[in-house]
Write a protein that binds this DNA or RNA. Structure first.
Lengths: 375, 375
DNA sequence: CATTCTTGTGCAAGCGCTTGCATGCTATGC
DNA sequence: GCATAGCATGCAAGCGCTTGCACAAGAATG
């Protein structure tokens, strides 16, 4: 391997003339008021369209502000009003560093709404101490509220935020008794539906490649799986649920291990398209055909660039839009902030079950493959 | 296709008791000063470790602040100091929405440094009017400086920001005469190196799958390609450089079109791994083997989840870390802000040329394939 | 025509912090 | 013993905005 280093240069030098940069300083409220021959109060009220300001004054002020390029100083404004018009997104830094994540989709949804509502979005990553970040955001009043993600089954952040009095919205649910607002996918129904689908196709030995058990969504999904079995008076194999991380490689490893076991499953349910991709790979390496020899279904969050529809063969999945969840989160948080009074809002997003070619009738190991195309 | 809608629920209800949420309000400076029997000035100075405050007082104040959970109000502080201790990242919203982008890597690098330096990161996406966003950020003093990305050959934002007096750093360069700070990859050297490598292997009919010409990095890369030919007294085929977008699909389409042409190229140079992936696909569809029948090289920004090393066959590339560029950008901007005086800092990041199996000797169309393994 | 509203505007007191300058104090020097 | 330094701390004036309240002048009322 041949490695060639290119140069690496750093230098400093003066920049721009003082006069040029001071060109036309943005006026402050006082300057604007003087120019208009009005008091700061009147101008301020006119700009905010307070009642009691006649239309004539209002438009005159608006025109002058526009002409002079006036923008209120956000710092001063937020100090005076107690509102920052900004929300924070608190997340582990590694969600930006790991290759497989649905983080960007959520971020995209949040960004869209925040921009539309004229708020600012503060990114608040943390490395280990999330509570410290939350406390800091609350006390420093940098933001009016926060969005937190990936709640645990019993998440301590909820109590903390309630105590701090910082408005917040959770992406997902938690089993805590405290009240909180959230946006969540209907994991319950989705996994029950996926399980039922496989049961309908005669599968009994099903493995769930689930997320880590401490996260509430994974715990819930596991329970839904069991419930679907119970509803038919059936019992899954012991150890049917694998609580592993949401990556391609763990999907692969888990599937490899289970396929090499004494009684390999006839179907897999995956928690994410990433895991499903790994499962597909393991199945291929075993010389098996998805949909014919073995079935796979998954939950698809609608992550960019990796769609269940593009799998070969196309993957049956419960589909939601995690981008839409992001939008809903931001919307909910901002509404809550602007309501002033603490309210609890909950929203469970719907999903679509989309049947594709990855599901077939259960076949005993080595039995005849039967491709089945649903739809 | 069978679609099942799940429920969709929204509800409001009261939350938490007033007393509970007011539990233990974070004290302000005044409260802390009173508790300590000191004036606000002394406490403030002690906390900021101003000279003239004796060690004894300082530690006493620090201990009390810690015990009472004091955090300065960021709004008030920034109003008083004129510093927000925050920087903004301005970008087109679509960079978050498109599936193929190196945006997250940059963001990750920026986040890391911003957090380490105790700054806040404001995400400032725009839909069409970037200038408006910049003006607003400058006038509203929400941030102390901004990072802008993807500069055009002649980028108007630079003049604007200089005029506004808002500190900024550019990810990439521009040909404007105004001074500005930037962090950039050594595109010049990288593309000259890639071109030379192919020329060394006897390739003369090379197609460059480049980025859009209006972006300075793409324009530069094109010129470097020509320069490498000129250095050998050679001339590339007319229309050798394709200025297209940085996606898998355009890589695919471009390669398909060129491979179907009368004189198909014997080698491709791609601007990104995304394009390269499309090119590989087109080559495979033509029944050709990369490295044997046709050569491919690319520039690899080190995007998560898609590495030149994982291509089949592994792809020769000039490698840089775009995450490192993000870190450098944030570092530079913060240093610049804290320097107070406007300085111009430039940094050109090095790259490694990593030879893998995707390059072979040029073979005439239909000639004997010669696999060649460099290294 | 005096009185009470309305209406449009302004005064001034904050919001919670920083910081230039002033002050009272204890150590030092001659 | 008194002037001269520090030294540690406090006063008060902002930073640029919002907003409760007061106010002047014209409109409406009896």
């Amino acid at each position: 391997m041949d490695r060639v280093k290119a140069q690496d240069e750093t230098s400093d030098e003066g920049r721009g003339s003082e006069s040029e940069r001071l060109h036309k300083a943005a006026p402050d409220l006082k300057a604007l008021a003087i120019a208009l021959g009005l008091s700061q109060s009147t101008v301020s009220r006119a700009l905010r369209a307070h009642p009691g300001i006649p239309e004539t004054t209002r438009s005159r002020v608006a025109a002058a502000a526009e002409a002079m390029g006036y923008r209120p100083n956000a710092r001063a404004r937020s100090l005076a009003t107690g509102r920052a018009e900004a929300i924070g997104l608190v997340f582990p830094l590694e969600r930006l560093q790991l290759p497989e994540t649905n983080f960007v989709e959520v971020l995209s949804g949040i960004s869209t709404v925040v921009t539309r509502r004229n708020y600012s979005l503060l990114l608040a990553p943390f490395e280990d101490d999330e509570a410290a970040v939350l406390r800091k955001l609350a006390a420093s009043k940098t933001v009016d509220g926060v969005i937190i993600t990936r709640p645990l089954v019993d998440d301590p952040r909820i109590a903390l935020l309630n105590r701090l009095g910082l408005p917040f919205v959770v992406h997902g649910r938690s089993e805590v008794s405290e009240p909180f607002s959230f946006v969540d996918t209907d994991n319950d129904a989705a996994f029950e539906r996926l399980t039922t689908l496989l049961l309908d196709h005669g599968h009994r030995n099903i493995v769930v490649v689930n997320g880590l058990e401490r996260f509430r969504y994974a715990a819930t999904r596991g329970k839904s799986f069991l419930r679907a079995f119970a509803a038919r008076g059936l019992t899954p194999q012991p150890g049917a649920i694998e609580f592993v991380s949401m990556t391609e490689s763990t999907g692969y490893e888990t599937a490899m291990r289970r396929l090499d076991a004494l009684e390999p499953p006839t179907a897999f349910i995956c928690g994410s398209v990433f895991q499903a991709r790994g499962v597909y790979r393991a199945i291929a390496e075993h010389g098996l055909r998805v949909g014919a020899d073995i079935s796979v279904v998954c939950h698809d969050d609608g992550v960019r660039g990796i769609s269940a529809a593009d799998f070969v063969p196309p993957l049956t999945a419960t589909a939601t839009s995690i981008g839409a969840a992001g939008e809903e989160l931001a919307l909910m948080l901002i509404d809550q902030i602007e309501a002033g009074t603490p309210v609890t809002m909950r929203r469970i997003l719907p999903f679509d079950l989309i049947l594709r070619e990855s599901v077939g009738l259960a076949v005993p190991s080595g039995g005849l493959p039967k491709a089945m195309r649903a739809g």
